[in-house]
Simulated scan of single mutants.
Amino acid sequence: MNLDFDKATLEDALYIADHLRPSDREECNAHTAAAARTTLETAWKASSHAWTAKSAEGTPIAILGLVPAPGMSGTGIPWLLCAEEADTMPKAFLKYTPEYLGVLHAIYPRLLNAVPSTSTKTLAWLKHLGFTLGEPIPSPILAGVQITPFYRVETHV
């Protein structure tokens, strides 16, 4: 299955928020105490760049963006959240991810963020993409939740 990528809109962000996979909802909760719609709207507004992956029918499947890291020139905070339908098309994500990773690095040579340490599929995917995983640390938002920082540096931009 192919995915079409467009510049993300607020409507796309809110659609994804209303249809988040449980693991993506957990990821949102590990970073903020706000509702998913508020979290996605905030991430979309804070992003210097954001795209929506849509099905052939035009349904938003995933949204990804880059937030400039405050006080860290050349560093972006990538984020990706998916609707439940994304789980039906893992091959499409594997196909397009390397291409978009190159796009992200062309904008920010250094990428960093963190995900819940329980998100084993996400952590394996990040490792497969060449991200370095840090040691789990306590979430600054939710007591008892561990997050795993990740980063990737592109030296050939």
Rank of each mutant, 00 (worst) to 15 (best):
V115W: 00
E57T: 15
T120A: 09
H31A: 13
S139L: 09
A56N: 12
A86W: 01
T9W: 01
S117G: 02
P68N: 06
P22M: 00
T122Y: 01
T148K: 04
L94E: 00
A69T: 14
P149Q: 00
H19C: 04
A92Q: 04
W44F: 09
V115K: 00
T59A: 10
I63A: 07
A143M: 11
G65R: 04
A33K: 08
P90N: 03
S47W: 12
T59F: 00
E154V: 08
V115G: 03
K45G: 09
L129R: 14
S55V: 06
E154P: 06
A50H: 09
A43Q: 11
P136E: 00
Y15P: 01
L104W: 13
G65W: 06
Y15T: 07
L126R: 04
D6Q: 13
D12A: 08
T59G: 08
A13F: 06
G65F: 04
A124P: 02
T42K: 09
A33R: 10
K95T: 10
E154H: 11
F150A: 11
I63V: 11
P90Q: 02
T132S: 13
I16K: 01
A35P: 04
V153L: 08
V157S: 11
A50C: 05
A83T: 02
T132A: 13
P140A: 14
A114V: 05
G71Q: 10
L81Y: 02
A46V: 11
A69I: 07
G144E: 06
A43S: 13
T42D: 08
H105A: 03
V153G: 00
E41I: 02
Y108T: 03
K127G: 14
G65H: 04
G130T: 06
E11T: 13
F5Q: 07
L104P: 00
L101P: 04
K45I: 10
T155C: 07
T88K: 05
M89C: 01
D18F: 03
A114Q: 06
E84Q: 01
Y108L: 05
Y108C: 04
I137T: 11
T132M: 10
A36S: 11
A17L: 03
W79P: 12
M1C: 10
W79C: 08
Y108N: 05
G130R: 07
A36F: 02
A124V: 08
A13R: 06
R110K: 14
D24F: 02
M72S: 14
Q146M: 15
V67M: 10
K7P: 01
T132D: 13
A50Y: 06
L126E: 14
W51V: 09
A56V: 12
T122R: 01
K95Q: 10
I147F: 02
D6W: 03
R152W: 13
T132I: 10
W51E: 05
N113W: 06
I137C: 07
R152T: 09
T9K: 07
A114H: 09
T42L: 06
L40Q: 08
D6L: 07
L129K: 13
I107Y: 08
V157Q: 15
P60F: 08
P138S: 10
V103I: 11
G102V: 12
A46M: 15
M72L: 12
A17M: 02
M89A: 00
K95F: 12
E27Y: 05
K127Y: 13
